[in-house]
Structures are given as C-alpha cells and as structure tokens.
C-alpha cells in the first residue's frame, strides 16, 4: 500500500514533467506536420545548457529558464527557415521530415559528444530545495515537486497562449486546416516559424530538470527522450498539444508503477506503449478523417 502511494504521487509528478517533455513535439507536429525526431536531442541540449549555466556562472535552473527558452527559440527559428520550407515541398513531407530530423538529431548528439565528452553529469539536488518532502507517510525529493510545479506553470502558459491570444487563435486555425487558414489571411509561414521556435524553446525547458528526474545527463539520452516524447503525445493524440497532458500523466503513472513493481522491465514501457497505441488507432495517429483513403 505504501509502495502504491509512493508510485502514484511520484507518477503524477513525473507525469506533469513528461507532459512538458511531449508538448513542444506535439505543437510542431500539429502546426506543420513535421516529425521532429531530434526533439530528445534538443531536450539534451537544454539539459547541458542548464548544467553549464550553473557550473560556469552559478545560474540555477529556475533563473536559467528564460535565458534558455529565448536562445532555443531563436535557434528553432533559424532551423525552421533553413530546413522546413524545403521539406514541406517534398512528395511525402512527413517521411522527409522524419529522415531529415533524424540527421539533425545525429548532428546534435555528435556535437554534444565532441564538446562535452561521453561522461555523465548531474546538478546537485540542493539547487531545487534540498530537504525531502514528507507526504502520506512517504518522503520524496523536493526537486520533484519543483519540477512538477514549474512544468505545470509552463503548460498553463502554453494553454493561455493557444486559447487567449490572437496568435494562438491563428495557430489553432493552421492546425485544423492549413489551406483554409491561409485563405482567411493567416500568415502561415511566419506563424509556422514562430511556433517552431516556441516548440524548440519548450523542448529545452524540461531539459533543465532532466538531471533531477533521471539522476544525470549525457549526450546519448536524446533517443530515449524522443521515444518517450512520442509515447506521451501518441497516448494523448498526436498534434493536439493539450493531449500531451493526458499522455504525460498516463505515461508518468505507468512508469512509476513499473519502476516500483517491475523495475527490470521498466525500460520496455515507452517502446511497447508506443507500438500498442499506434496500432490501437485504426486510422493511424490522426483518426480516420485525415488518413489517406
């Protein structure tokens, strides 16, 4: 029983974090149907940025967030204009984007390996409160609560952006129909670039917390994070950003339960979950109306 309580509480905290992990990927896919398999590597770069900001200048993860978000936003816009318009002209843009961003992910991982070496690094837990939190008779690292809280705040901000700003309305219009949005005067290209930047910026933010959730960071964590992100947003329906919240919670609780009761098989979870959910949706990931007949 105690184990179950522990698994559920940590699962919910993980879940909010994983929701944020998937959010940027989902936004980019939703707006331009680009399958960003370099997503996990962007998270990894976010993690290293946070690590170096602290190591070199003692800027803690919370203070680092705005700096990291803005720099990755700019980086995302550059990548967008360099690559995406050309992909969208391909015969099968989704597949082309998959392959191209696969290349991008290799580049990001290689540069990180060259720059930082293959060693694992971590930030001290004391950066996000040091003392454990006692809840329902269990003790949890305080950093998990801060991670969950900040992730939730970031998700709320994205929600407000999409539902309460003009840019957000236009973004949702593009998500539901690119052509029609363009025909009513939405600047699809500029907004795509903006959202691509936001998506990359959003990917870097959870990076700041990976060290606290996973214990350490290294250049090769990108692929696993990508698979997890896909599992999260596929559970919550790909391309619907707020579906990522549901997906994150399902994934977080499932992971915590696996780690508690079947620890040696926990690594299988994201892969198997991803495959099963993809297959369980007969119309592919987007439902039957979008699937080519």
């Amino acid at each position: 029983m105690d184990l179950l309580v522990y698994a559920l509480v940590s699962g919910v905290l993980y879940g909010v974090f994983f929701a944020l992990v998937g959010l940027g990927l989902s936004l980019i896919f939703g707006v331009m149907r680009v399958v960003n398999v370099a997503h996990g590597d962007v998270i990894m770069w976010g993690a290293f940025s946070s690590f170096w900001l602290y190591t070199l200048w003692h800027i803690g993860p919370v203070l680092a967030l705005p700096i990291i978000f803005v720099s990755f936003f700019v980086f995302g816009c550059i990548i967008y204009y360099g690559i995406v318009p050309r992909i969208l002209q391909a015969e099968d843009p989704e597949l082309a984007s998959l392959i191209v961003f696969f290349g991008v992910s290799q580049v990001l991982e290689a540069i990180a390996t060259i720059a930082f070496g293959n060693t694992q690094r971590s930030l001290p837990d004391s950066l996000l409160g040091g003392r454990p939190v006692h809840l329902f008779g269990q003790s949890f690292p305080q950093s998990w609560f801060w991670t969950g809280l900040i992730s939730a705040a970031a998700i709320v901000l994205v929600y407000l952006y999409l539902s309460h700003t003009r840019t957000g309305y236009a973004t949702r219009a593009i998500m539901s129909n690119r052509q029609e949005a363009a025909s009513v005067g939405v600047n699809v290209s500029a907004l795509s670039a903006l959202n691509f930047g936001i998506g990359i910026g959003l990917a870097a933010i959870p990076g700041c917390f990976v060290s606290f959730i996973a214990g350490n960071i290294s250049p090769d964590i990108g692929l696993n994070l990508t698979v997890i992100s896909f599992a999260v947003i596929v559970v919550g329906s790909l391309g619907k950003p707020l579906g990522a919240v549901l997906g994150g919670l399902v994934y977080g609780v499932a992971t915590a339960l696996m780690q508690t009761y079947l620890p040696s098989w926990a690594a299988l979870l994201p892969n198997v979950l991803l495959i099963l959910i993809m297959l369980a949706r007969p119309g592919g990931l987007l439902g039957s109306e979008v699937r080519r007949a």
């Binding site: 597949l95 984007s97 990931l285």
Partner: peptide, 11 residues
C-alpha cells in the same frame, strides 16, 4: 504509414 511506421519500427 510513412513517418509512423518509421517511429514504430524504431520502438
């Protein structure tokens, strides 16, 4: 199809 097959086969 397409990208989904690629991701699922990787998983």
């Amino acid at each position: 199809e397409g990208a989904y097959f690629g991701i699922a086969s990787l998983a």
